[in-house]
Amino acid sequence: MAQSTLLSTDVVAPRDRAPQWAEWISRHFCGLQSDLYGDVDFDGQIVSSQAGDVILTRLEANRHRVLRTASMVRTSDVAYLKIVAPWRGSAVVQQQGRQACAQDGAWVIYDTTGTYEIGNPERSDHLIVMVPKEGILERGQRFDGVMARRLGANGISRVALETMRNTYLELPNMSGAAAAGAGELIKQLVRLSLMELSGQDTALTQREALRDRIRGYVQQHLRDPQLSADAIARALHCSRRHLYNAFSGEGESIAAYIQRLRLQACIRDLQQAGPHARPITDIALSWGFGNPSHFSRVFRDHTGMSPSEFRSS
């Protein structure tokens, strides 16, 4: 019978839950930074099992973010391809200049040997699968172009999604040999899914290419207060309709995407304390918020606190 590991904040004092969660996330997932969007109250649990060398984890938690930096990549021992497949909620994965949103019925894959960021903007219930890279890639084979891509809607990637979910749910009833065999099946299905996706040349991949160009333009011009869907369409020489079609299915509009990135940048700057900390209004203006009152309002909607309360906390 496969053994499970349970980590739950239910046994941790409320004031200690955030730092304990950060420590668990870093240790269990081989080095990650995490934060709670500025929230004070938090609860979550991690239940993990193994199918051979494939690690399957069910993570239920309040909203939170995780970040893997270049220094964390260098200190990691094992190279994994990592999959997030939500049962409930959503996960926004950013890697290699791309972004993909996973929701129920889909999964997103990313590479732990590169930097990445994952936002879980609402309470979520995710299946997270870690597959050793050497079990997926053959010699000389690369799947860089399909990292941070959404899969699972149909075809072999849908079969892979159902297999990962069912394997996790049935692991307590499997022998060690059966669990190892299920892990090998997961690796084979993931590899086939990536091969199928990397070989496509369809309208879908064309939309994904435009989506990547949109994200790249937004990243480069995030500080420009005139950044908008119209400005992006003009710069990329496409119509607003093509722009919106390329971004459909991401779980947020282009305007919401721009605002979220700006808020994340402001949050990072507000976390810099000390005598050289910049005024809140300067930070907001530097990231494209032209109206301090509007900034305060959307900041409170995002974090539950005003900018000054967030900085104090």
Results as ranks from 00 to 15, higher is better:
S8L: 12
S8H: 14
A13N: 08
P14G: 11
R15E: 13
D16V: 09
Q20H: 13
F29L: 05
G31C: 07
G31Y: 03
D35P: 02
L36A: 10
D43N: 13
V47H: 04
S49W: 01
Q50P: 07
D53W: 02
N62A: 15
M72A: 10
V73S: 04
D77A: 14
Y80V: 00
V93I: 10
G97Q: 04
Q99R: 07
A100K: 00
Q103F: 05
W107D: 00
V108P: 00
T115V: 11
E117I: 12
N120Y: 11
N120V: 08
P121Q: 06
R123C: 11
S124L: 04
L127V: 01
G135I: 05
D144L: 09
R150C: 01
L151G: 00
I156M: 02
V159T: 05
L161A: 01
T167R: 01
T167E: 02
S175D: 14
G176K: 05
A177C: 11
R191K: 14
E196I: 03
E196V: 03
D201L: 15
T205L: 08
G216E: 05
H221L: 07
D224A: 09
A233W: 04
R234W: 11
S239C: 10
R241Y: 11
N245P: 10
F247Q: 03
S248C: 10
S248M: 09
E250F: 08
S253M: 11
I254W: 03
A256W: 10
Y257I: 07
L261F: 07
L263K: 02
Q264P: 04
Q271K: 15
Q271N: 15
H276Q: 15
R278D: 09
I280G: 00
T281W: 11
D282A: 12
W287C: 03
G288A: 05
G290Q: 07
P292E: 07
V298F: 08
R311C: 06
